[in-house]
Simulated assay, not measured.
Amino acid sequence: MTRDGELRVRLRRTLDGLCPVVFRELTEPRELARWWGPDGFTVPSVESDLRPGGAYRIAMQPPEGELFHLVGEFIEVAPPERLSYTFRWEEPDPEDRETVVTLSLHDIDTTRSELDLDQGVFATERRRALHEEGWSQGLGKLGELLASRMD
């Protein structure tokens, strides 16, 4: 939660790979499907029209349960430093509302970059916490994937 009371997720991660490499992982459907989502989830398909006003649709398969989709529209596409898009579930929980995700990247040395994530505003703390957990696990998988490519 921010000082003004808005329910937001704010995360920062240091990743192996410079901004162009990380930006590709965040935007190319094949790459995104390798790490997206909480632990145990798979991503059977990613459709993406990567341009301002373009839409995306990500199919997510939990370890148990039925396939579901998240969808949205790209607001800002500024490779390799910034990406912003709307985020909503196709079949939302009653506590859900559309949020905006903003990802900012900057190189911190010759091999690593820093990713700042901001998402909000959520309707309830429960939904904010759910997204924070999902992002934390997904970005953990992204970090492992990028680190394995440095070896």
Rank of each mutant, 00 (worst) to 15 (best):
Pro52Glu: 07
Pro52Gly: 06
Glu73Ile: 14
Gly72Pro: 02
Thr99Asn: 10
Val43Trp: 15
Glu90Arg: 01
Met60Trp: 12
Trp89Ser: 15
Arg57Glu: 08
Arg51Ile: 05
Ile58Gln: 03
Thr99Trp: 12
Glu81Gly: 12
Val100Pro: 00
Phe68Gly: 05
Glu98Lys: 07
Pro44Asp: 05
Met60Ile: 13
Phe87Gln: 10
Tyr56Pro: 04
Pro94Asp: 10
Gly72Gln: 02
Thr27Met: 05
Val43Thr: 15
Glu28Gly: 10
Leu83Trp: 01
Leu103Gly: 07
Glu81Ala: 11
Pro79Cys: 00
Leu32Met: 12
Pro20His: 08
Thr27Asn: 02
Phe68Val: 01
Glu47Pro: 10
Arg97Phe: 04
Leu15Lys: 03
Arg12Gly: 12
Leu15Thr: 02
Tyr85Val: 05
Ala59Met: 12
Ser84Gly: 00
Ser48Val: 15
Phe23Arg: 12
Val101Ser: 00
Leu15Pro: 05
Gly40Arg: 09
Arg24Tyr: 08
Val71Asp: 04
Leu83Glu: 03
Pro38Met: 08
Gly37Thr: 14
Gln61Arg: 10
Phe41Lys: 11
Val43Phe: 12
Trp35Cys: 06
Arg13Gly: 05
Val100Ala: 01
Glu25Lys: 13
Cys19Val: 08
Trp89Gln: 10
Gly40Thr: 12
Arg13Ala: 08
Ile58Ala: 04
Trp89Ile: 03
Glu73Arg: 13
Pro80Phe: 00
Glu64Pro: 00
Pro44Cys: 10
Ala59Thr: 07
Ala55Leu: 15
Pro29Cys: 06
Phe68Ser: 04
Arg34Cys: 13
Pro52Asp: 03
Phe74Met: 01
Tyr85Gln: 10
Pro62Met: 01
Pro20Asn: 06
Thr86Trp: 00
Gly37Asn: 13
Ser84His: 00
Thr99Ser: 10
Thr102Ala: 04
Leu11Ala: 01
Cys19Arg: 14
Ile58Tyr: 06
Ala78Ser: 11
